[in-house]
């Protein structure tokens, strides 16, 4: 085990994972994950497919259930208590690989749904906030269209705006650019960089190493359900410590 940064699990971390284990049937997907994320920290998780990186962030809002260990998000521990799960989900935004916009609602309705029904915001206020974030992701003119009428890059930017409308404290990105055509990757990454500059706490599962280098405070490399190495991006890319990391980097950076 060669962890470049040994971070003690401290109460001030907005996300704390302690000894988290998870199995799919017999298959041990997450092995003893310890992770502490400070407010405003930007973390990129990378690793080969099946290494457990998506599962890790999906555990943070209980889209996946962990079977051992402790996960505390924003001071609330994730247990089977639905109230607590929903409380955490209100504060944690998520962006998916396949956007997952609601196709029966317009872009604006996609963005106002959760603020109105979860935060009980009046419609007018919710629409104001939605337009604000749609402007931030630079597609306010699409507000009354349906998701099916937008390009992949535009849909993903809407998905980011939709998550931001809940004013989350943490944003999770699960391979946000993997399903996009190459010419659309940049518009989504630019949006995410803008978000990072505003100090949002972000956890990104991505293969965009350029993004990791410019944006991340810390890059975490996972393999076979374990955190193999974590380091600031410069150390991570230029002086990887672990054999497995070196191999992965050599495969991904041609």
């Amino acid at each position: 085990m060669s962890e470049a940064i040994k971070q003690p699990v401290s109460p001030e971390g907005i996300i704390q994972m302690q000894g988290v284990n998870k199995w799919y049937g017999q298959f041990h997907v997450l092995k003893d994950i310890n992770l502490n994320v400070r407010q405003g920290e930007r973390i990129v998780l990378c690793g080969p497919s099946g290494s457990g990186k998506s599962t890790t962030i999906r555990c943070l809002n209980r889209l996946e259930e962990h079977q051992q260990g402790r996960i505390v998000v924003d001071g609330v521990e994730l247990t089977n208590d639905l109230k607590q799960i929903e409380a955490i989900r209100r504060e944690v935004g998520m962006v998916f690989q396949h956007f997952n916009l609601f196709p029966h609602l317009t872009i604006l309705q996609n963005c106002t749904l959760a603020p109105m029904w979860v935060r009980k915001m009046p419609k007018r206020k919710a629409e104001e906030i939605a337009m604000h974030y749609l402007e931030r992701v630079r597609i306010p003119e699409q507000a009354n269209k349906y998701p099916g009428q937008l390009s992949g890059g535009q849909q993903q930017r809407v998905a980011i705006a939709r998550a931001l409308c809940m004013k989350p404290k943490i944003m999770l990105f699960d391979e946000p650019t993997s399903a996009l055509d190459p010419e659309m990757v940049k518009e989504v990454l630019d949006t995410m960089i803008g978000l990072a500059e505003d100090g949002m706490t972000m956890l990104c599962v991505t293969h965009e190493m350029g993004f990791a280098r410019t944006v991340a405070n810390r890059v975490i490399f996972m393999d076979k359900g374990e955190i193999v190495e974590q380091a600031p991006p410069n150390d991570f890319f230029d002086r990887p410590q672990n054999e497995r990391t070196k191999l992965f980097l050599s495969q991904i950076l041609h």
């Binding site: 959760a114 939709r162 809940m166």
Partner: peptide, 25 residues
């Protein structure tokens, strides 16, 4: 499945997720 997950991830409970997102579709 992504529709269920997206609805859950924004904090919609079961009945709201069904009534606002899943059933209309």
């Amino acid at each position: 499945k992504g529709q269920y997950e997206a609805a859950a991830a924004m904090g919609l409970g079961y009945w709201r997720a069904m009534g606002l997102v899943i059933l209309p579709q």
